[in-house]
């Protein structure tokens, strides 16, 4: 699917297959939260983002309302994606909100701020995907941090 933020003109594309995969992984951890790293690449004009893959954390702690992941053990995967022709890179994070809507919490906003303030991370516009899911419903919320504000893709 292709999503856009009309107001700022940025768009992203993500395959249904990847979304289904993230949802299935998220469901196996239900009712606890779970998440991972989003991998993708920007178009030549840097106005379009294509999210292609995920890396799952090897180390994490989770409860129904909290998810903490570590980067330990994912370094090689990051390097492998970067070595591909399209130079796929870390572009953001995803996590689930079990039995809840895909709206960013204060902790999520704080995490985004940590990303943009991390010198090693060097991405100015991290993307956040939240999957709100229950036994019967699913809702995806994609957000990007742009000029000190979080925008939702529609």
């Amino acid at each position: 699917m292709i999503l856009k933020i009309e107001k700022i003109g940025l768009s992203l594309e993500v395959e249904d297959e990847l979304l289904n995969k993230l949802l299935e992984i998220g469901k196996t951890h239900y009712p606890k939260e779970f998440g991972g790293f989003l991998i993708g690449y920007y178009s030549e004009n840097n106005m379009h983002l294509h999210i292609t893959d995920t890396i799952l954390p090897k180390k994490y702690q989770a409860s129904k309302y909290n998810f903490e992941r570590s980067t330990k053990g994912i370094e090689n995967e990051l390097v492998e994606f970067y070595a591909e022709n399209l130079r796929k890179i870390y572009i953001g994070e995803w996590h689930t909100h079990p039995d809840n809507s895909p709206i960013p919490s204060a902790t999520d906003i704080s995490a985004i701020n940590t990303i943009i303030n991390s010198k090693k991370t060097s991405i100015a516009n991290p993307v956040l995907l939240i999957i709100g899911c229950s036994n019967t419903t699913v809702d995806f919320g994609f957000y990007v941090w742009f000029e000190n504000k979080l925008y939702k893709y529609e």
């Binding site: 003109g9 909290n66 990051l78 890179i89 870390y90 994070e93 996590h95 995490a111």
Partner: peptide, 24 residues
């Protein structure tokens, strides 16, 4: 016609995610 020229920020080199992040 595209009415704005906003772009995703350009990155230099391979971005490394922050070692620990907490989501709620």
């Amino acid at each position: 016609e595209d009415t704005n020229n906003n772009q995703y920020g350009k990155n230099s080199g391979m971005p490394i995610p922050p070692p620990k992040l907490n989501f709620g």
